[in-house]
């Protein structure tokens, strides 16, 4: 869990938000922030959340409130690396597909298994983060090796041109 320091829960249903916060609070190293609207979430993006659990519907906030899809788009604009997991009471496949199209990492239906699924999603995101970090490390190592090899060729060429080494080292 060390890779995840900050999680946002954005939901206008206080009970859902509180239950998810309680469920995830067993991971004491993670700082969990709860917001009742998308606007509040966007104002606090400076806290650099790695994961946002975002409700799809914000009907209870008011008619002018941003809906989940609008918030998802804004989050992805502001912080493309932040993973957004959509939460909804709807189990319609087209809603899920639509959220994925706009960059949601996963879609969870609000029911009794939602909390366990949220935990699994966090584990999957951590696995992905580890793989990304490893890939970055290998890329850097490959680059370093390439530079070292190139430097060696250049050095040999310089030494050769100055006669410090010859094509016949006289070893035999």
């Amino acid at each position: 869990m060390n890779q995840i320091q900050t999680i946002f829960i954005v939901d206008d249903d206080p009970m859902q938000a509180m239950m998810l916060q309680d469920y995830l609070s067993k991971y004491s190293t993670i700082s969990i922030h709860v917001f009742g609207s998308g606007e509040e979430c966007l104002k606090n993006m400076g806290l650099n959340p790695q994961i946002i659990f975002l409700d799809y519907n914000f009907d209870l906030v008011g008619k002018d409130a941003m809906d989940g899809l609008d918030i998802l788009k804004e989050v992805k604009k502001l912080a493309p690396d932040t993973e957004v997991v959509m939460f909804s009471g709807q189990d319609k496949i087209e809603v899920a597909v639509n959220t994925m199209k706009y960059g949601a990492y996963d879609y969870i239906v609000k029911n009794e298994s939602a909390f366990h699924r949220s935990e699994n999603v966090i584990f999957n995101i951590i696995k992905r983060l580890k793989l990304t970090q490893e890939a970055k490390l290998y890329k850097r190592l490959t680059m370093l090796l390439g530079i070292a090899f190139l430097a060696m060729i250049v050095l040999i060429a310089i030494l050769y041109s100055k006669g410090a080494i010859s094509s016949n080292p006289g070893w035999y």
Partner: peptide, 13 residues
């Protein structure tokens, strides 16, 4: 619809 939708998970829990 909005009120029913919001209450639905709580009924389940």
């Amino acid at each position: 619809r909005a009120a029913a939708h919001a209450l639905k998970p709580q009924i389940s829990y």
